[in-house]
Design a binder for these strands. Structure first.
Length: 581
RNA sequence: GGGCACGUAGCUCAGUUGGAUAGAGCGACGGACUUCUAAUCCGUAGGUCGGGGGUUCGAAUCCUCCCGUGCUCACCA
């Protein structure tokens, strides 16, 4: 157990003691009591708000309560000092030897250090990317892809059973027009005039699809009656598109567990089934929507349509499920899809959306509530847009002109590891500026490099240690006398390492993997600082030839740092490197 | 006009669901290598947490009203 929790237990015991002595009443609410690192180092190593939380409930002055607690806690062998501060905080200094124990534990646990089983086998379905298979993945998709995948691996590592899922929008008018575009390219490949009209997907990437169709089918698809061949073209095109998407994702380090096809939901009647179910619950009705106020839609036609009563679940208007032509809206198959997820009985259902779908979240949450009889909360995480820069100038993207930057472009120019780390250096709901030049820079300005470099430096020191004949096996190192770790800077970094389990816990329970990236950066920073000390003061070097005890203890320290860096990078899907090139 | 986000140092951003004198990086200025990787480090300067009001022992964080930015608004997905 980590020191923070041990200390918290001790504090709780002290509180209990005061309860037994009737200094405190017994029915106090204690859930907002915290033990944490104070913001200011000078206050102490750890701090608790216990007396402020309890004082009011018990009608005692916070500082008085604090002094009672301190009297009890001071007797503890772990606590070097405990002092009242400010309005009633208690600040602690912990004996060095207790901090040092952590290093031994990290060496023993290895990369599992810090990962507790908080999921306990609960199942989570995370749906992400779900890009329309009408073209290659671009930057916009990339962020959601990385976020979803990292969240998945994070949750997996804390004991959840995770399913990574991709919903394929392979139905609807957009696929029809994709196929028309492909048909134009097919004609072109057969030497006919390229028909740019009615071609909504002008990108070059379809040229190849057209050519491949020729290889596959010759000119047999050439017909005045496109419809008869549409199924063949559709099947072929979709499989080519999806293969490309899977390949791009794979190169970004992502493997989906499950793909669900929208058109399959139509085929096996699941859309109708889900809507029927909602009808049975009296949540579908025929009604007329008002034109949105202030909207400039000139083509608004007031009409009666089939609506889902999402207002019953917090939405501001009811949402249509059928288009004017009688077909389902996009919402309907999505209802069916989520109904299916509910029936698959996951403990948690998570959707990762792009910011452009933010207006869609309330109705999705509403329908999940409805379909699960109020039992399930759909968790939706939004990823804000990515703005690309090159030489400080924004890269303009236009889907029509076909000038958008694809994931493939990013992979080729920047590489998987940098993309992933840099995308994760931002909170998911904050907009992200991504500069190509910075991403490939090998300096401190580039956080991924900075963290990798710390790991590489440690690797190089360990290599040198071995060349000096030092045994760096973890089993051996873990048994060395760690009390030689005594400088303030060393203890400082051990305290930082002690935060790792909590970083993982908070990241996982709040679905915020960016915290890990920030933490790794800070840890790397402390390491680089520690290493530089050795340049000014040679007794602070990690390897000291004529002092084997200190050397071994320091080897233990840097190995612990390395373990945490590597395990953190792995969660982020970034490959740790041993040497910078 | 409605909905949802966001607004923190000159710039880019953190801030553990309400804790102490609000933190990093970049940029600026001043320093540090006969190296375990200077691809790095140390120091200094920089703030009315968009603004007003409220809730309480205590607010960047919660409520409310303004101001500003982004996304979005049946019959696309």
């Amino acid at each position: 157990m980590e020191i923070t929790n041990i200390l918290k237990d001790k504090i709780m015991l002290a509180v209990e003691k005061l309860e037994n002595q009737s200094v405190l009443p017994k029915d106090l609410k204690k859930n907002s009591i915290t033990v944490e690192k104070p913001k200011d180092e000078s206050f102490g190593e750890l701090s608790t708000n216990v007396s402020m939380v309890l004082a009011k409930q018990a009608d005692i002055k916070p500082r008085d309560l604090a002094s009672y607690l301190i009297k009890i806690l001071k007797k503890d062998q772990m606590i070097e000092s405990a002092q009242i501060a400010g309005p009633g905080f208690i600040n602690f200094i912990i004996y060095k030897q207790f901090w040092i124990k952590l290093i031994k534990k990290i060496l023993e646990d290895g990369e599992r250090f810090g990962f507790k089983n908080i999921g306990k086998g609960k199942t989570v379905n995370i749906e992400f990317v779900s890009a329309n298979p009408t073209g290659p993945l671009h930057v916009g998709h990339t962020r959601g892809a990385i976020f979803g995948d990292t969240l998945a691996s994070l949750l997996k590592n804390v004991g959840f059973s995770v399913t990574r899922e991709y919903y394929i929008n392979d139905a609807g008018t957009q696929i029809e027009s994709l196929c028309r575009s492909v048909y134009s390219r097919y004609e072109e490949a057969l030497g006919r005039k390229y028909n740019a009209d009615n071609n909504e997907y002008p990108g070059d990437y379809l040229k190849k699809v057209g050519e491949n169709l020729v290889d596959e089918f010759g000119d047999s698809l050439l017909s005045s009656d496109i419809k008869s061949n549409l199924e063949k073209i559709k099947t072929y095109t979709l499989s080519v598109m999806m293969d490309q998407i899977k390949k791009d994702l794979y190169d970004l380090g992502i493997i989906m567990d499950n793909f669900v096809s929208e058109s399959s939901l139509y085929k096996n009647g699941k859309v109708q089934e889900a809507i029927d179910y909602l009808s049975k619950l009296n949540l579908i009705y025929k009604g007329v929507l008002e034109k949105p106020k202030g909207s400039e839609k000139l083509d608004w036609v007031e009409r009666e349509q089939d609506l889902f009563k999402s207002t019953l679940f917090g939405d501001d208007i009811d949402r249509p499920i059928k288009k004017i032509d009688g077909n389902w809206t996009y919402f309907a198959p999505d209802i069916a899809y989520h109904y299916d997820k509910i029936k698959r009985n996951y403990h948690e259902i998570v959707d990762i959306f792009g910011a452009d779908h933010s207006g869609y979240t309330v109705r999705m949450k509403a329908v999940v509530k409805a379909l699960s009889s109020g039992k399930k909360d759909l968790i939706i995480k939004l990823c804000q847009l990515v703005k690309l820069y090159k030489d400080g100038i924004p890269v303009k993207m236009s889907k029509r002109a076909g000038t958008y930057v694809t994931l493939r472009d990013l992979l080729d120019e920047v590489g998987k590891d940098s993309i992933r780390f840099l995308f994760l250096m931002r909170k998911n709901d904050a907009p992200l500026d991504f500069d190509f030049n910075k991403a490939i820079e090998q300096t401190k300005d580039n956080p991924v490099f900075y963290v990798q470099y710390a790991n590489a430096r440690i690797y190089s020191i360990l290599k040198r240690a071995r060349s000096l004949g030092i045994n760096t096996e973890k089993e051996f190192i873990a048994k060395t006398d760690l009390s030689y770790l005594s400088s303030e800077n060393e203890i400082l970094i051990i305290r930082k390492l002690s935060e790792w389990p909590n970083i993982i816990f908070v990241s996982a329970s709040r679905y915020e993997p960016h915290r890990i990236a920030f933490y790794l950066y800070e840890l790397a920073q402390l390491f680089h600082g520690l290493q530089s000390l050795g340049k000014i003061d040679h007794t602070m070097k990690f390897l000291i030839k004529d002092n084997m005890q200190v050397t071994l203890a320091r080897v233990a320290l840097i190995q612990s740092i390395q373990i945490v860096i590597i395990s953190g990078l792995k969660i982020l899907g970034v490959k740790p490197v041993d040497e910078m090139l």
